[in-house]
């Protein structure tokens, strides 16, 4: 089992890049402002009842209940891994269709997919593999949704206030 240190460092760097990409685009498209569907608001209220912050909880509910920029980043990494830049643009189309199915305007997911396509293909020029970006995006979504809902929702609410409401 010789997991090389370089691949490990690559996955961590990819996780940081993916984290910045999807958080920036989600905040830009005002996801923490209001729940798109009833379920997103309910998830936000339940997270707030456990000690979290309401805007962060609503943003996490929106991530759960419709494909937003995080899904766009993951699927665009898969697309670049399989078919290069045309694959990434194909996933942007698929994410747009998925957003339409989930009753959402869907501009956050499409924008995230297109920007992630160009970011990932730029990083492949300096020695990164797109497969590392898939693992990095899974780690990035783990830090938001999977470690501690209280702390991650407070962090998202802090970033939302720093953006200016």
């Amino acid at each position: 089992m010789d997991i090389s240190l370089l691949a490990f460092v690559h996955i961590l760097v990819a996780a940081a890049v993916c984290w910045l990409n999807f958080i920036a685009i989600d905040l830009l498209f005002r996801l923490p402002a209001s729940g798109g569907v009833v379920g997103a608001t309910a998830i936000g209220k339940h997270i707030e009842a456990k000690g979290g912050a309401l805007p962060g909880g609503i943003m996490m509910g929106n991530i759960v209940s419709s494909p937003d920029a995080s899904a766009g980043t993951l699927l665009a990494s898969c697309g670049v891994f399989i078919a290069g830049i045309p694959g990434g643009l194909l996933t942007a189309l698929l994410v747009f269709i998925g957003n339409r199915i989930c009753n959402d305007p869907g501009y956050a997911g499409t924008t995230g997919a297109i920007s992630a396509t160009f970011i990932v293909s730029a990083f492949t020029l300096i020695g990164f593999s797109p497969a590392e970006f898939i693992a990095g995006m899974v780690i990035a979504i783990l830090t938001i949704q999977g470690i501690s809902h209280r702390h991650s929702s407070r962090l998202l609410a802090y970033l939302w206030r720093a953006r200016g409401g």
Partner: peptide, 26 residues
């Protein structure tokens, strides 16, 4: 398999959306 991954992701998101909305009363 790119289409399969997108189909699985959209399907499970729709499922979560429906479960949360029905549980919340809408």
């Amino acid at each position: 398999s790119l289409v399969a991954a997108a189909a699985y992701f959209v399907g499970t998101t729709l499922e979560s959306n429906a479960i949360a909305s029905t549980y919340a009363g809408g």
